[in-house]
């Protein structure tokens, strides 16, 4: 296979959380195709094993349940143990517990904040130390268009995703001088198992709000992650790259 001149990740190691989902899988595939060694994390081990088998060499499975606060540090340790280091951390794992704000329980709020925001804090904190020493690191957090626009029924999810953006910018400030960048990719509506569940009426309404007139593909999110993870993006930090077909131009 011909080596690509740009966005080459040969020799780099990447941990992708939520790699059993549609977007996470596409991200892992893209980083792997660019030459990176990847560690695939998620709660369901079977789909991770399947993906690792399909990728072949340079793919490791490191299951973790990020709803448990202790899991984050252990996951970084497992991934570094499997790959030798974690040069690139892609925080993609996320859950939804949608409900009208007035009906939302403390538990629904806390679960979403725990997995989508607090676990990213813990994973990033644990990954930073070796990145600081190496004077190179990439943290890419997958947020959402709703973190910028809000969405009815997703007060918890939007809060966590907006929180990620503020957290990323603060961390980006702190570690920029060490060759570590921290950025976000904010997907709009992407074709995944989650959006497959929508009926035609719901899909029609959504498409009406998207200037591109279609949903995005997971590979289009993966391409944005690959760019931000690459050596070429070394001067981009604290940014959010919106990949939403023009649905929100922020």
């Amino acid at each position: 296979m011909k080596e690509t001149a740009m966005f080459d990740l040969t020799g780099k190691t990447a941990l992708v959380t939520g790699a059993s989902g549609g977007i996470g899988r596409a991200i892992a595939e893209a980083l792997h195709a660019a030459g990176a060694t990847v560690a695939l994390s998620g709660t369901r081990e079977a789909p991770l094993r399947e993906l690792a088998a399909r990728l072949g060499e340079r793919a490791h499975v490191v299951p973790a349940n990020l709803s448990e606060p202790e899991a984050a540090a252990g996951l970084i340790k497992d991934a570094a143990g499997a790959m030798g280091s974690v040069d690139i951390l892609v925080n993609n794992a996320g859950i939804t517990r949608d409900n009208l704000f007035m009906r939302m329980s403390d538990e629904e709020w806390a679960q979403v904040l725990e997995v989508n925001l607090s676990s990213v804090f813990r994973l990033s904190r644990a990954a930073l130390r070796p990145m600081m020493k190496a004077r190179w690191g990439r943290i890419v957090n997958i947020t959402s268009v709703v973190g910028a626009t809000g969405n009815p029924g997703q007060g918890n999810y939007a809060a966590a995703k907006a929180g990620l953006m503020g957290m990323s910018k603060s961390l980006a400030h702190e570690v920029a001088s060490r060759g570590i960048t921290v950025n976000c990719v904010a997907p709009g509506f992407i074709e995944t198992a989650m959006t497959d569940k929508l009926n035609d009426d719901q899909k029609g309404k959504i498409l009406g709000q998207i200037p591109a007139g279609r949903m995005g593909a997971p590979s289009e999110i993966a391409a944005a992650v690959l760019y931000l993870a690459s050596p070429e993006a070394g001067y981009v930090t604290g940014a959010t790259l919106h990949v939403n077909g023009g649905m929100a131009m922020v």
Binding site: R129, M132, K133, E174, V175, S177, R178
Partner: peptide, 9 residues
């Protein structure tokens, strides 16, 4: 402050 963290490391 980040230098001091690195020194400790």
């Amino acid at each position: 402050s980040l230098d001091t963290v690195e020194l400790v490391m």
